[in-house]
């Protein structure tokens, strides 16, 4: 599934944001540059610009989420949009309403944008293909497939510390098998020109065909972390594991948890990232999560700016090129 035709308009501009696949390098950089200007808005006394005034954005979270949902909500509010948080999990779906009916109901309420998180891969894509033409859809994570806004905020964070993507060695560590974040990150890193992308984890949690995406698999942390510039940890997704993939959490931390000794193998100025929520003592040693090398909290702040940029870009690209005219 590339989603290529559906998330871009006829001029190649962003219409929906469903997956990193099929977006070229210049458009990814455009998102990062645009996010840079929104980061300044969050540092002001009045953290709001009137760009999306009068626009209604519905947060459709079919899966629990705190960080992603609240940063999307803050991003929307800082653009002056109105936000609707729908607790779909506990209402409509439980009462037996189909997804299509829920969507039509929201369209009848004149919503302009849907932020979708769903346990099934392809859900956001499905919704984008069903909605009325004026409605925008942003993927807030679908199954194991894709979490494109998380990948973009990670790229934004990496660029802040390591400005040249073409000189980087990046390692993604942990439960790659269940991770939509890892998949989107690998796509983004390779489109942005990162020459060496490594994934590290136990064989049971690394997809066998990961090399198709351009990443090299390592099963030993001591090998995989050598000389990397960026260490991206993943969360163990116990809720998605339906068979015995791990011996024990203790055993996992011993082999794949990030501690001082293993981190010493990476470059001295390597940064440590984690999409959150972090499991201290399982994926990452507490002292590292709180250390100066950890950029985990910066990732959260950057998430707001990046999501503001993506919302503004998809909403702003509603007209054809012929109508573009500057007014002095």
């Amino acid at each position: 599934m590339t989603g290529n035709n559906i998330q871009l308009d006829a001029q190649g501009r962003l219409k929906h944001f469903l997956t990193i696949e099929g977006i070229d390098r210049s458009l990814l950089f455009e998102i990062l540059d645009y996010a840079e200007s929104f980061a300044a808005v969050s540092e002001r006394a009045v953290k709001k610009v009137p760009l999306l005034r009068g626009i209604t954005i519905a947060n459709l979270f079919f899966e629990p989420s705190t960080r992603t949902r609240t940063t999307f909500e803050l991003a929307a509010k800082r653009l002056s949009a109105d936000v609707l948080n729908l607790n779909i999990l506990s209402s409509a779906t439980k009462k037996g309403e189909t997804l299509s009916d829920t969507l039509q109901t929201l369209e009848a309420m004149h919503c302009d944008m849907f932020i979708v998180r769903h346990a099934n891969s392809g859900a956001a894509h499905f919704i984008a293909s069903k909605v009325a033409p004026h409605i925008r859809v942003i993927n807030g994570g679908d199954g194991r497939h894709s979490h494109p806004t998380q990948a973009m905020l990670d790229m934004f964070t990496i660029r802040k510390h390591k400005p040249d993507f073409t000189k980087l060695k990046v390692a993604i560590i942990g439960d790659v098998l269940h991770s939509r974040v890892a998949r989107s990150e690998i796509h983004a890193l390779s489109i942005l020109g990162v020459p060496e992308i490594r994934v590290i984890g136990p064989r049971t949690l690394i997809p066998a065909d990961i090399s198709c995406l351009g990443a090299h698999a390592y099963y030993d942390m001591n090998e995989g972390l050598k000389d990397v510039d960026v260490v991206m940890m993943l969360r163990l997704q116990r809720e998605r594991m339906c068979s015995a993939l791990l011996p024990s959490e203790h055993e996992y931390f011993k082999r794949y948890g990030l501690d001082e000794k293993k981190l010493a193998l990476a470059k001295a100025d390597a940064i440590v990232m984690h999409p959150g929520p972090i499991n201290r003592g399982i994926e990452i040693e507490s002292s590292i999560a709180d250390s100066e090398r950890s950029v985990i909290l910066q990732q959260v702040s950057h998430g707001i700016a990046v999501r503001m940029a993506i919302m503004a870009m998809t909403m702003g690209n509603k007209t054809t090129g012929s109508q573009v005219e500057e007014t002095a």
Binding site: E30, Y34, E36, S37, A40, V49, L51, G316, K318, V324
Partner: peptide
């Protein structure tokens, strides 16, 4: 001042790729 985020024609002409932040 960069007034790109305050324009009244955003919904008609959309975004500019690069906006130097106001300072």
């Amino acid at each position: 001042l960069n007034i790109a985020f305050y324009r009244d024609d955003f919904s008609r002409i959309g975004t500019h790729p690069q906006v130097t932040p106001s300072k």
